[in-house]
Amino acid sequence: MAGSGTAHLRDDPDVLIRVENMVVEFSIPGGTVHAVSDVSFDLVEGETLGIVGESGCGKSTTARAVIQLPKPTSGTVSYQGRDLTALGNEEMRKIRPDVQMIFQDPISSLNPRRTVHDIISEGLRVWGGRGVWSEERIEELMEAVGIDPRYSERKPHQFSGGQCQRISIARALVLDPKVIICDEPVSALDVSVQAQILNLLEDMKERYGVSLIFISHDLSVVKNVSDRVMVMYMGKVCEIAQSDELFDHPVHHYTRALMSAIPGAQVTGQADLLEGELPSAIEPPSGCRFRTRCPKATEHCRVEEPQVREVSPGHWVACHFPHERD
């Protein structure tokens, strides 16, 4: 895996976000952490792109770097044709309302000392001139996400985790964004509540016409909400395809290992099991970054990094020796 390349980017006129060769590196005392290395992807209007991978694969950093938090070390992020990496702080700030975000921790993402009303209306306060600044908008949103508007003067700690996540969704929607980045939005919730939030996200997507970048470590959740899914490993793209295609016919050995590890999954046939430990992100393996744990790795994988290539229409993989598409 561990592949690079931009062959899978689409020439659709509806492309909202196009990320090319994005690299994000952090300096730490022990060296440089290669969090995201040469990742490319795009997002078409109305689409949900799922990014899945294990902890440390850079999925969250990738999504956050799209909105320049942190700024990518190199590469371009174009939003509706404008390169966000070239913008100054103030210009970037003007674009922020278009790309909103929902965070993992429902509690830490709401300021404990502000009321729900203040939290949701913050965007309108900042961008008073933009759109319709009105109490009705807040009320409508609260109702849409399933929070009784009578509770608008309450503080976050008076709500449950699921309700806090609803408030976060309302806050993200208030500025009428084009894209919402959902960073593990249901990981901290119980399964029964998780289903409520996932359904709500689908409804809001429909109702307000937003596109989603949905990050999760949970494959079944990602499959449920996504149109396309990108699998990442150690800051690289492994495989990207339509959701159903990817889950029915995974060809990357890492994707296959991930899928066979889903708890309760009825594993059929030969399961790909992962051997060994995750290598250090400071000194990632040469060539294909997955080769140290890949059952099919050869000398070729050590020397040459695989490029993204198409195995079936719309199904892209970065592997020299992908599994047969069964």
Partner: peptide, 26 residues
């Protein structure tokens, strides 16, 4: 470090406003 500070930044609030409205009260 709290995510509500990030959230305010994502909404497009200015740095100084984040300092006074999100950080200072806490």
């Amino acid at each position: 470090e709290r995510e509500y500070v990030k959230a305010a930044e994502v909404v497009g609030a200015k740095r100084l406003s984040i300092l006074f409205r999100e950080v200072l009260p806490n």
